[in-house]
Write a protein that binds this DNA or RNA. Sequence first.
RNA 1: GCGCCCUUAGCUCAGUUGGAUAGAGCAUCGGUUUUCUAAACCGAGGGUCGUAGGUUCGAAUCCUUCAGGGCGCGCCA
Length: 572
Amino acid sequence: MNIFDNYLELIFKLIKNNQKKLGLKELNEFKGINLEIPPSKFDSDLSTNICMILSKPNKLEPNKLAVNVKDLLTNNIKDFKEIEIAGPGFLNIKLSNNALANIINKILQEGKLFGSNKTNLSYNIEFVSANPTGPMHIGHCRGAIFGDVLSNLLKFNGNKVTKEYYVNDYGNQIKNFVKSVYLRIREIKFNEKFKNEKDLYPGLYIKEIAKKILLKSKINFNSFNNSYDFLSKESLNYSIEMIKQDLKKLGINHDKFVSEKLIVEKKILFKAIEQLKKTKHVEEGFLEPPKGVTDRNWKKTKKLIFKSTLFGDDANRALQKDDGTWTYFANDLAYHYDKVSRKYDKLINILGADHTGYIKRIEGAVTALSKSKTILECKVCQLVKLFKNGSPFKMSKRAGDFVSVSDLLNEVNKDSIRFMMLNRSNDVELDFDFDKVLEKSKENPVFYVQYCHARINSIFRALKIKNFNNLEIKDDTLNFNKYEKEIIKKVFEWPKVIKISSKKYEPHRIPFYLYEISTLFHSYWSKGNEDQKYRFIQKGKINNNLMITIQLILIVLQNGMNILDVSLPSEM
RNA sequence: GCGCCCUUAGCUCAGUUGGAUAGAGCAUCGGUUUUCUAAACCGAGGGUCGUAGGUUCGAAUCCUUCAGGGCGCGCCA
């Protein structure tokens, strides 16, 4: 039930059928025309810019065209009770009571589905993909929640979504990680001091892993090479498990974990390269020394390169290292070849701000691999800064030199973390303030929205019922006051919020919307303090218009918080 | 040097494929509770939308210039 889309379609049809009469030669496919809720100072339900847009290519005056369009619409769409021409040529539309009643009834029927635009595409969203060399830190957390909620959002909007985690369980970092575990084991078993050499992982969690492995293993750890296979398998298991636990505590479950090691073993890379050689995206050649980096022993050697400059990248990228082994990017190319072959409509990668430089090459890779049939879009989450008492806050560094997700979860509950991590656009840095998140006040948006729900439930308690059942309205009983009207208009906007946030991959619009509708509710509620007649419950009863208004709020609160996966307590 | 992101009220930020007098929260000042949760509400002040141009009926939004801040720039992963 998206009234904007529905009515626009009607309007377009009418205008097309009466094109000549209106003197319109050029319809421009109705591009740029929209229907929206006008600012609250205008006393109308809908507003469209159609006359302003169409007047230009047809060389008509917007206000004159508006007079004709107004007549056309009022005579043919009986849902439109009254239309006013306003400002530079807006049409402000009032809906008939009958139309309002029908719309509201439909929303009540749709309930949990209200807001879905039923787009029906298949998405693959890769997110987190933190290296399995240690626990998740605060930086991963934002991307993790962003990806999870974006998945929920796209699912809610009617799509199929695969939530994917790419496990980088291959390469030098893994060797360093395993070596660190090995040295910690030697430290415990043979009392050898752990020397913090370059490239090793000093974090104390490595010690925990070492202890666990020692408890269950029977091998002697006399040589790194001899124990490597066993050690790497065990250490990776532990650290991946650790990450999965953190994700679980945040309420995140991926559908699929793809192992880089497996991608390598399946030799997918060769197929990918073979294909890209044919399309001339991969060639043997030489690369220039990296810019902005000095003091390197640069050797110009011939190797396979991916021509990412064709896709706007700064430089072409090496697929092979000097010693002939494959680069990380090469394996990622193979991984994305695999993703492309799974035939999703859209691929999305969620990255941290420090991976911005990687975007063009990997998006280009997908375009090349899919022969422009699949588009990969990378969304970047900017940094998270921790604050406490208004000043930057550093947590215990037990886990290493970063703030871990489990540290965070010890202080703040999952609901607050999820909501707050999305209470900013992904494009801007996010200040995460511990005090604010723990506060029970308007300043804490999570609380504010939840409190709205709790207050609604207090009405149920006062009326001694569990919910409003079987609500239905007839137009003759329809008589909303100005506060209710405002709330209902806001509810009508919900499908639009879903549509835009789905289209632009911007889940942050949902918490903002929920906060706004909560404000309208709290405000209306408080009117009862000033004026008896606005009290929700009169002589133990509640009137029908109010019941409907509250039910509509409940529907969007529940649908919204479901997408965020944040709880709605009925009492606080 | 290059790429990406950001610059909107004192502070932190929203702002829909370009729309009407640019919106919230915090902070400041003032008010509201014998009655459904005051953990809330109402009101006031506060703006050259970083700068300079351009596009047009109309620009915070699109294009160009410059300035400031962040992130990144390996044949690491």
